[in-house]
Design a protein around this nucleic acid. Structure first.
Lengths: 153, 153
DNA sequence: CTTGTCGTCATTCTTTCGGGTGATTTTGCG
DNA sequence: CGCAAAATCACCCGAAAGAATGACGACAAG
């Protein structure tokens, strides 16, 4: 990301230099200022669009927390390797995984509590722990990450 | 969409006009040309970024890191997915599907609103409609049903 | 016996979701 | 042009979710 800003500034500086170099031509051509302005506008508009695409192509990178840099996980993310082979169990206990599974099926905490015959607070505790271990802030995100880690089908 | 281009051209024209109007000031300030060039560059860079976001956010191909709509066709062609699983588009509009997609990625309503440059209320309206059309009561359930209907990868 | 883990439950508090309703603006199409 | 669908935004309100604690019993390992 920093490289883009660098390139950006570099192009800007180059453009300024070129403008400075061709400064004396303003005396000759009458309306060259508009032409130059248009050129600059066009250039930077294209550049801006390109930049805009660049900086927004990974939209949830800002929200997505710690993703492992391991080659296995990357392979899973890219779909190269079937995810059931490598499951990144991040210290998630069986009970917690059970809750995560029910969450993925669209059940509410109350329904999960009723299913497992435990208190709703217990479900909340488990889910909170799962979220913490997965680095998720919402249950939908937990489901998404759970699938990435091969914990969920 | 056409309006944006229009606005774009309008702003450009206005800028040119302003430049023309302030043309005589170039005789006073020595390096104002660079300043003006920088201003133009900055303005159009921001504008370009904005435009780039505008023209690329409606189709979620650029923002969606996951497999696009052609994934199912590819999967069918590869024999991975049985062809009887046809996507049951239940009158869900593209925008609504886009919101559903972002929900499936674990984004909150606020984050979705920020991603799509709309109000949080709008996101809520869309999601409510999607839930209604899918028969879901929770977003996790909506995701689950969306996958069942072949609307989500 | 001490330590650590796991599962369980509670309380308080804040944030987020979701339903409901109404409104305006854009847009696509006949 | 005029209409209908889609998209946008606003407000209220209750329910659900989640964070931050603290606590207790069971159980296995050291």
């Amino acid at each position: 990301m920093k490289r883009h800003v660098l390139i950006y500034g570099l192009i800007g500086g180059t453009l300024i230099t070129i403008l400075q170099w061709t400064q004396y031509r303003f005396l000759v051509l009458e309306h060259s200022i508009e032409i130059y302005a248009g050129l600059i506008a066009l250039t930077f508009a294209v550049l801006g669009i390109w930049l805009g695409l660049r900086i927004t192509s990974p939209p949830q990178n800002t929200t997505a927390p710690k993703l492992p840099a391991t080659s296995e996980a990357n392979a899973v993310a890219l779909g190269v390797v079937p995810p059931h082979k490598i499951r990144d169990d991040r210290g998630i206990t069986p009970r917690e995984l059970e809750i995560l599974n029910l969450i993925a099926h669209g059940l509410s905490n109350r329904e999960i509590a009723a299913t497992l015959f435990v208190s709703e607070n217990t479900v909340k505790t488990h889910s909170s722990r799962v979220f913490d271990k997965l680095g998720a802030r919402r249950r939908t995100q937990a489901v998404q990450l759970g699938k990435q880690f091969g914990l969920l089908p």
